[in-house]
Nucleic acid binder design. Structure first.
Length: 462
RNA sequence: GGUCCCAUCGUCUAACGGUUAGGACAGAUGGUUUUCAAUCAUCUAAUCGGGGUUCGAUUCCCCGUGGGACCGCCA
């Protein structure tokens, strides 16, 4: 069996992390089964669709490593076909013109509200042979939805879902301005693209019942559906664009690695035994719909950071350096080319206490900046005796020929004895003077990553 | 409100109807290192409630409770 999957976002806003996960699951399923993964831009809402969002969606997907097969489908280009299908449905008696004005509909809704009963369009024009067609109303086209019995769908994630057909109204497939609605366009396009598996958010469950009726009216093969639970924000609500960390760009800016985010998203609502870390290859091989849970899951930033930390520590250092360089360039954090080689050489310890690329950058600032700024608070930590230690250090340091662990250890151990202190007594003031911070890489690492003159300069600065 | 769906540590989740209910993140404690946010070790912590079915229920069924989604001429 061939698997043809798709991701069909509308370019009405930046892609958020829930959408990314939907795309990922579709892509994984396609790759696993050596099928196809298509991208369809659903841009039929002309008012809200923006080309910049289309671009943002594609670049977000690419950043995660998700590439669609073939060229992207632009839904609006297929409108003519959608209309033809609407006509066909009318001819075959599966759809009809409805001349109810918007006022009339609103009236109905009001009435229902007052009576406390749920609104469903009253199907006034469904079989209206004797009704007089009003001249001043442009009609919409409605699909003749089933009015009796039950429908059920075997969902690959949700299992059996069923509902009474009466709860589905005669939904609109062609608007007053003769443009197709989502229910029609998506169904026609999925059919034309030969989609075999639709993985989408479970907010589409009801749509599936509607769309399935269109499939059967047209005698089209119905694809398999898998409705995955939505991702909730940390506060437990539906993820919205207002949530801070909701778009891919937010994560890129934080300094999250794409492999880490892919791994996190994969494990959110899906599991394979006790396994936590999945390489790209393992993701593809091990992913299955059976492992997807039915309940919504909350976003957990500390977990994202933790997985990110893992990837930072485990990927090849050269690659990490490239990622860091790109990150700094993108976010306007200057890295002089003269410092580049030092950073590359030092990345093995700069990454040590870092959860994000931003953290690595912060750890590297003492290399990148020529001026060391020491906060007043840290300056207070350097008292008179610390100054004496630093001075003695400088004297001995200037004399050594080669900066290596042995020579440095010798100096520092002598100082510890001479000043009757411990390593901290020497190490902390040294770190503050050299980096401007109490925290950071090991003192020996710092000393070996800076030029001798630079160290002397900084030591004299106190 | 109507319809549909869901329910295991704080979070993500594992567990052919039989496990001391497991792992990871977070949290706590302790060790180590050179400051620590690194590292190692240990610990705390869950089957929403009530009924069934069964020798036995986290697992199956019903009811309740809680949460979510949908209810657009948006997608």
């Amino acid at each position: 069996m061939t698997f043809i999957c798709r991701f069909a976002p509308s370019p009405t806003g930046p892609l958020h992390i829930g959408g990314v996960r939907t795309a990922l699951f579709n892509w994984l399923l396609a790759k696993k089964n050596k099928g196809k993964f298509y991208l369809r831009i659903e841009d039929t809402d002309k008012e809200r669709s923006k080309d910049e969002f289309r671009k943002q969606i594609i670049s977000s997907l690419n950043w995660l490593g998700i590439k669609h097969d073939g060229k992207e489908y632009i839904q609006s280009k297929n409108i003519k076909k959608h209309k033809e299908i609407a006509d066909e449905l009318i001819k075959k008696g599966f759809a009809y013109y409805c001349y109810c004005s918007e006022d009339e509909i609103n009236e109905q809704k009001e009435k229902c509200k007052k009576q406390g009963i749920p609104y469903v369009y009253n199907r006034k024009w469904r079989d209206a042979k004797d009704l007089k067609i009003p001249e001043n109303v442009k009609p919409v086209v409605r699909f003749k939805s089933k009015i009796s019995g039950m429908s059920s769908i075997k969902d690959l994630v949700q299992g059996e879902m069923s509902l009474s057909n009466l709860t589905i109204e005669d939904f609109i497939i062609l608007r007053q301005d003769n443009t197709p609605t989502y229910q029609l366009s998506a169904t026609v396009d999925d059919h034309e693209m030969g989609i075999t598996h639709v993985i989408r958010g479970d907010d589409h469950k009801i749509n599936t019942f509607k769309q399935k009726q269109i499939y059967s009216a047209l005698n089209w093969a119905v694809p398999e559906f898998a409705h995955i639970p939505l991702i909730h924000s940390e506060t437990g609500k539906k993820l919205s664009k207002r949530d801070k960390a909701s778009t891919i760009d937010d994560y890129i800016k934080t300094g999250i690695l794409s492999d880490a985010l892919r791994n996190y998203l994969l494990r959110l609502g899906w599991a394979h035994k006790d396994k936590e870390i999945f390489s790209l290859e393992e993701s593809i091989n091990l992913f299955d719909l059976k492992g997807v849970g039915k309940s919504p899951s909350k976003l957990d930033m500390s977990r994202i950071l933790s997985i990110n930390e893992y990837y930072i520590k485990h990927i090849e250092e050269k690659k990490l350096f490239e990622l860091l360089k790109n990150y700094c360039e993108k976010f306007n954090k200057p890295v002089k080319s003269s410092k580049s080689s030092v950073i590359l050489k030092s990345i093995n310890f700069l990454k040590n206490k870092a959860k994000t690329l931003e953290d690595i950058y912060q750890n590297a600032r003492y290399i990148l900046n020529d001026e060391v700024k020491i906060s007043a608070e840290d300056k207070n930590l350097i008292n008179q005796s610390s100054k004496a230690i630093l001075k003695d250090f400088l004297d001995s340091f200037e004399k050594i020929k080669k900066i290596d662990k042995n020579s440095l250890e010798e100096i520092i151990n002598k100082l510890i004895k001479a000043h009757k202190t411990n390593f901290k007594g020497v190490g902390q003031p040294l770190r503050i003077v050299l980096t401007g911070s109490k925290f950071g890489p090991a003192v020996y690492d710092i000393l070996r990553s800076l030029d001798k003159e630079e160290i002397i300069k900084r030591l004299k600065n106190i």
